[in-house]
Simulated assay, not measured.
Amino acid sequence: MTAYVEPSFERDTNYIDDRITKDSPTWPVEPGRYRLVVSRACPWASRLTTVRRLLGLEDAISLGVCGPTHDADSWTFDLDPGGLDPVLKMPRLKDAFENRQPGYPRGITVPALVDLPTRSVVTNDFPQMDIDLIEQWDAFHRDGAPDLYPQALRAEMDPVMKRIYTEVNNGVYRCGFAGEQPAYDAAYDRLFTALDWLEERLTDRRYLVGDHITLADVRLFTTLVRFDPVYHGHFKCNRAKLIEFPALWAYARDLFQTPGFGDTVDFEQIKRHYYVVHSDINPTGIVPKGPDLSGWMTPHGRESLGGSAFGDGTAPGAIAEGERVDPADNPAVGPDGVLHRSN
């Protein structure tokens, strides 16, 4: 019997949409109370990892990191000693969802914010979570933290971010999980129409909106950094590689070399997740050795377009030792967790 395959991909967005806010009687902003659970493989989780680092929220919200692979049941803490998250003392993220709702019926997803006193999930609603880190946790931002969602730019930012989400972030999945040729063809055309638009937009401006990095750049970067290692081949997004888009490739390198972006990227975990977990697309489970990653730290030349990464702010400080990416998984990262330019 042949398994039924959906002709076109539709993302399940039925998340736990509770929020941690300043005035919430249930989930108030409270440093030390919550743990952000991510996987470095997941682009949606990477958004939160980057925003947390850029804003300097490491002391306010702790970080739990799941391994890059999971089964149909849950993400697991297999990177930690004994396979247990050292703070939550649980082997699977599913346990935190079950603590919130026994028999939890929906997907176990990262990123998730977990309440430490009850060891239960508060929210996995990633589209709202990064905005709340910006707006609700501002009392705990580091000195010099950038304004990632400026009020004066929101009228321009919001439609840009919406198009990035629907056409690029989700567009690569629409290609990869298409179950019929017409659905794939349509998804492919939509994706590259959007990438062509971004290539043109970024030809004469350094950042997507304004003259310093914003949340729009964070949300686009997490897809761009996965494009050549995963989406180009695995998801059949193969009209062109990222390195074949002059402006987009230079823009991506500019962001990658900015503290908070490239120093949180784990290329090996990214590849292992997609090529191992998606057994319907890659039944052999073979993880490709490529692509060559040496170009990520080469000069990008974007300084000539003006602007600066952090505007009137400053770069985040050093990454805590326990949160550093393994240099074996990102050749641009040194043992100290700092990005080092290619020779």
Rank of each mutant, 00 (worst) to 15 (best):
A216G: 09
C237M: 03
V218W: 02
L242R: 05
T222A: 08
H234L: 14
G233N: 15
V225I: 14
L220G: 04
I213A: 11
A216F: 08
F235D: 02
A216C: 14
H212Q: 15
I213T: 11
T222R: 09
Y231N: 06
K236G: 12
A216H: 10
C237H: 03
D228E: 14
E244I: 05
D228H: 07
I243V: 13
F235I: 05
T223D: 03
T223S: 12
G233V: 13
T214N: 02
L215Y: 04
V230P: 00
G233Y: 14
V218T: 05
L215H: 10
F221S: 02
K241I: 06
A216K: 05
K241V: 05
P229N: 04
T214Q: 03
I213F: 04
N238W: 12
N238F: 09
T223R: 01
H232D: 08
I213M: 08
L242H: 08
T223Q: 01
R239P: 09
V218D: 00
H212M: 05
T222S: 10
P229W: 00
F227L: 12
T222C: 13
A240K: 15
N238K: 05
L242T: 11
I213S: 06
F227D: 00
C237N: 00
T223A: 07
H212W: 11
N238Y: 10
E244V: 03
I243F: 12
P229H: 03
N238V: 10
I243Y: 12
V218E: 00
R219G: 08
N238D: 15
H232I: 06
R239A: 13
K241G: 06
A216I: 07
P229M: 02
L242G: 10
T214G: 04
H234A: 13
I213C: 05
K241N: 07
K236P: 00
K236F: 04
P229L: 00
V218Y: 03
V218S: 04
I213P: 02
P229S: 01
L215W: 03
D217M: 08
L215F: 08
H232Q: 07
H234V: 12
H212D: 05
V225Q: 02
K241F: 11
T222M: 12
L242Y: 08
I213D: 02
T222D: 08
V230G: 05
R219F: 03
I213K: 00
V225C: 12
A216T: 09
A216S: 14
E244A: 10
R219V: 07
F227T: 05
R239V: 07
R219I: 11
L224Y: 01
H232P: 10
I213Q: 03
F227R: 01
I243M: 15
R219N: 14
H232R: 10
R226V: 11
H234Q: 13
L224H: 01
